[in-house]
Design a protein around this nucleic acid. Structure first.
Lengths: 193, 193
DNA sequence: TTACTTCACGTACACTCCGTATGTCAAATG
DNA sequence: CATTTGACATACGGAGTGTACGTGAAGTAA
């Protein structure tokens, strides 16, 4: 690894970190590349050299956040007793994650508008793939109805996501959260045989 | 009603129609207000006078499309046999609606990024309220588990919405659509007693 | 009819921001 | 040591939004 490459990596990381904060605070459209790069101690030149354009930088930020989410979901799933409980735990984890304003703004709101449908993101698949894998396993174990695995996974994630947005926008998140999780568990049982 | 008011209303409608097409074709960010207003035979002056800013015009377009959707969902629900089938039919209608590229781009992708969480939109509530009403009725009939009505309605809508996005982004929507609807019906049965 | 007011809308300008073309200097290479 | 590569800075052009101001038709009151 060359010295140049090392500093390039560090600067890439700096830009992503600064972008993550700027996008979270102002939203994608209102985030200024000049301000963002200045906060990282660089200029727009570095940005266009490393990421091509504003969208490229945004994609890098989303990928980082998404892989963090996938990692978290996996640890939660692994800690659970059995696959079915793991599936439910993952959904609950997703709901909780969406309470994070940063995640909400960048991944849930701006993400689809800037990058298109999430199912087409290379990174998003990591999170969705985890759910698909569990669903597939449960269907093979004949615990679930033989529905399309991707359809089931996407609907579960969608329900969790919407629940999360609801909780986040609520005046009393602490009261609403358990209701959301309870309703999610009820819905999910619809997949059981 | 004055002559002035009449022409003002007509011009408002013209702007909304032109905006609807422009937003659908180019997306919110890339839609130029100059081009848009010119296509309506007006200038940006009319726009800022009637809608305040770009976002205001977009909100008007979304409200129009959303009320159309709510109306459609209601007719579908009314045509169904029984409340339970009506609930399922509404969900399926929502999923089908997302096949429309205009609806997909404006309401599903750009809407949340520009206007924030959909559940907070004044218009969106009309669609949600319909679902809540049916769920409440079914719970009173003791057909459903006694879950929180709003939670159940939001999760159902969320699942349908996500399924819709999935179908819309698919390469073969016609093949995916039935899978999505089947999975939705399976999920929904989780609410049954 | 006439003078005055209102208001929907057009026009011109200022400001910001993105993307690109070009310059520059340290690091790598031989 | 000469040359090249590459990471990054700088300068510029184009486009777009928002706003201040102008204008002329419609309404109103004497």
């Amino acid at each position: 690894m060359n010295k140049r490459d090392i500093s390039a990596r560090e600067n890439r990381a700096k830009l992503i970190a600064a972008a993550r904060q700027a996008f979270a605070e102002h939203g994608y459209a209102a985030a200024s590349m000049d301000d963002l790069t200045a906060a990282a101690g660089l200029t727009r030149g570095a940005l266009y050299h490393s990421f091509g354009n504003k969208r490229g930088l945004f994609a890098a930020v989303v990928e980082q956040m998404d892989s963090e989410m996938a990692l978290y979901a996996q640890t939660v799933g692994d800690k659970s007793e059995g696959d079915w409980e793991g599936l439910l735990a993952e959904g609950a984890a997703y709901i909780e994650k969406a309470l994070d304003p940063e995640f909400q703004r960048i991944v849930l709101l701006d993400g689809p508008a800037v990058l298109g449908d999430p199912s087409q993101w290379p990174s998003q698949s990591s999170c969705l793939q985890a759910t698909i894998a569990i669903v597939e396993k449960l269907i093979n174990e004949k615990a679930l109805k033989p529905v399309d695995t991707e359809a089931a996974a996407r609907l579960l994630n969608g329900a969790a996501l919407n629940a999360a947005l609801w909780v986040a926008a609520s005046d009393t998140p602490q009261e609403v959260l358990p209701k959301a999780i309870e309703a999610f568990r009820a819905l999910a049982t619809g997949l059981l045989k």
